[in-house]
C-alpha cells in the first residue's frame, strides 16, 4: 500500500457517493500508481461502477477528496477526460453509425484532426479485429463485437489512463485472451489501467494490485498473491456431495476454515491431501474430491460470503 499520494494517477480519500439517501460508495481511499494495472473486485451493487464513474469525471463525488492525473474532477473534468479512455459497463455506441464512423466521430470529440482520427480508426479496427466490418452498421453486430468496438473506441485518444468497467463481459474466451494481450501491451507502453471484473482469472492475469469492494467499502487491498496468502490457506480441499447431503459438522476441526456451498464443502488447509485422508478416516464419503491451490475466488468468498459470478 502506498502511504503518500504523490505521483498517484488517482488519489482518493474518504471518497463517497450518494444517490438520494442511498450510499453507493461509503468513504474509500485509493492510490493508483502510474503504469500499474489496478483492479476492483466485488459483488453486484458493491459500488465499483459508481467509483469508476467518479474517476471518469462523469459523476460528481458527494464527499471526500479525489484527484485524477493530478487534477480535481470537479473543476478540471474536461481536461482530465481528454486524457482518459473509458469503457463503460453498458455499451453506448451509436448503433445507427458504422464501425468506422463510431470511431471517427468519437475521436473528433477529443479535438483530434480529421486525418489523425481516420488513421487512428483504421489502426484500431485492426486492433479489435473488426476491419472486415469497418463499413457495416453497428446495430446488427454481435454483443462481443460491440464490446470490442467500445474498447477500441476508448483508445482513440491514446489515453494515459484507461478505465475498463467489466471489459470482457460477453466476450468469448478467444476474444478475452486477445483483449488481455492487448491490455498487457498497453501497460508496457506506460498506460495505467483500472479494471473492474467479476472474473478472478482476469483479475489474476491483469492486475498488479486490486481492492475488494463490498457494500460501498473497500474490504481488502493488495496484490493477488498477497490477498491469497492473507485471506486464504495454501490449498483448498473441495468435497462434492449430492446437493443438501453435505454435513459441515462431520469435517469440523479438520481445516482452518470451512465454506458451505450448495453442492460442496470447501476445506481451507495447508495440506489438502492430508486433510482428505483425515476426512476419509472419519468416514466422510463425498461423491468426489479435489485438492487445488487457493485462488482469488476463495479470498472473495471469505471476504464477502459470495462467489464471484453469482
Amino acid at each position: 500500500m502506498s502511504g503518500n499520494g504523490d505521483g498517484g494517477l488517482v488519489r482518493a480519500r474518504g471518497l463517497a457517493k450518494r444517490f438520494g439517501d442511498f450510499a453507493a460508495v461509503r468513504g474509500i481511499d485509493l492510490d493508483v500508481r502510474p503504469g500499474e494495472a489496478f483492479g476492483f473486485l466485488g459483488p453486484n451493487g458493491a459500488g465499483k461502477s459508481s467509483t469508476m464513474r467518479m474517476v471518469a469525471c462523469v459523476s460528481p463525488r458527494t464527499e471526500g477528496d479525489l484527484t485524477v492525473l493530478g487534477m480535481d474532477p470537479l473543476t478540471q473534468g474536461p481536461r482530465i477526460r481528454a486524457r482518459l479512455g473509458v469503457v463503460p459497463q453498458q455499451d453506448n455506441l451509436d448503433t445507427e453509425l458504422t464501425v468506422r464512423e463510431n470511431l471517427y466521430v468519437y475521436g473528433r470529440y477529443f479535438g483530434l484532426s480529421k486525418s489523425v482520427v481516420r488513421a487512428k480508426a483504421t489502426e484500431l479496427m485492426e486492433f479489435a479485429q473488426l476491419a472486415d466490418r469497418a463499413d457495416d452498421q453497428v446495430e446488427p453486430l454481435s454483443g462481443g463485437m460491440k464490446r470490442r468496438l467500445t474498447i477500441a473506441r476508448s483508445l482513440i485518444n491514446d489515453p494515459d489512463l484507461l478505465l475498463l468497467d467489466e471489459p470482457t463481459t460477453g466476450l468469448d474466451p478467444q476474444a478475452r485472451h486477445l483483449l488481455w494481450d492487448r491490455l498487457f501491451r498497453l501497460k508496457q507502453q506506460g498506460v495505467t489501467l483500472i479494471v473492474t471484473t467479476h472474473y478472478m482469472d482476469e483479475a489474476e492475469q491483469l492486475c498488479d494490485r486490486l481492492v475488494v469492494m463490498d457494500g460501498g467499502r473497500i474490504v481488502a487491498e493488495g496484490s493477488p498473491g498477497e490477498l491469497i496468502s492473507r485471506y486464504s490457506t495454501r490449498e483448498v480441499l473441495e468435497l462434492r456431495f449430492t446437493p443438501g447431503d453435505q454435513d459441515p459438522a462431520a469435517v469440523e476441526g479438520l481445516a482452518e476454515r470451512v465454506e458451505v456451498l450448495p453442492d460442496r464443502l470447501l476445506l481451507y488447509t495447508a495440506d489438502g491431501e492430508a486433510t482428505l485422508a483425515a476426512a476419509h478416516a472419519r468416514g466422510v464419503t463425498p461423491l468426489s474430491s479435489l485438492v487445488r491451490r487457493s485462488t482469488l475466488e476463495d479470498v472473495f468468498l471469505h471476504l464477502t460470503g459470495r462467489t464471484l459470478v453469482d
Partner: peptide, 24 residues
C-alpha cells in the same frame, strides 16, 4: 518504471478540450 508523468501533458495524440462552440 514508467514514462507517464501524472501532471504533464505527454499524450501521444494531441487530445484537446474543444471550446463550447467547437464542441457543439
Amino acid at each position: 518504471m514508467t514514462t507517464t508523468d501524472p501532471t504533464g501533458t505527454n499524450t501521444r495524440t494531441a487530445a484537446r478540450v474543444p471550446g463550447t462552440v467547437r464542441a457543439a
